[in-house]
Amino acid sequence: MLSIILALKLTLAATDNVQVPTSHPNNLILDSSLAKIALGYGGRELRVFHEIGYSVFSFDSDQKEQIYKSLQSQFGTSKVCLDLVKRPAFNPNDFYWPNMYHPRAVRADLAWI
C-alpha cells in the first residue's frame, strides 16, 4: 500500500512547467497537396509519406510557428500538423530505482530526458 501511496504522490508533483520540447522546432507535417504552398513559404521537403499523403517540411525556426498558424487557419488541422514529440517510457536501470522516490519527487526524472 505504501508504494501505491508514494506513486500517487508523485503524480501531483509533475505539474509545473519543464523545458521539454513538445514539437520539433523546424518541422511541420503537411498534407502533400500543400507542397507548393510550403515551398512558397521557404519550406524544404525532408520526407514524403506517399502511403498516407503527407510530407515533412522544414522551415526556419523563427518562422515555423507563424507559418503553422497561417496554414492551419487556411487548410485545417487534418492537413497541417505539428511534428509532435513523445518520450521513452523507461526508468533508469539502477537496481534500487523502483525504491527511489526522491528523484521523482523533485522531478529529476523529467529533467533527464
Binding site: 520540447p21 514539437s23 520539433h24 518541422n27 507535417i29 525532408l46 520526407r47 509519406f49 502511403e51 498516407i52 503527407y54 515533412v56 500538423c81 505539428l82 511534428d83 509532435l84 514529440v85 513523445k86 518520450r87 521513452p88 517510457a89 523507461f90 530526458i113
Partner: peptide
C-alpha cells in the same frame, strides 16, 4: 531520447512495407 512524429511515421510505414508483423513502441 525524443521521438518526433516525422520519424515515428516513417518507421510505421517502413515496418509495414518491409514485412514486419509486430511493432514494439516503448514511448
Amino acid at each position: 531520447g525524443y521521438f518526433y512524429d516525422s520519424a515515428d511515421i516513417a518507421a510505421y510505414l517502413y515496418a509495414a512495407n518491409n514485412g514486419a508483423k509486430v511493432l514494439s513502441m516503448s514511448y
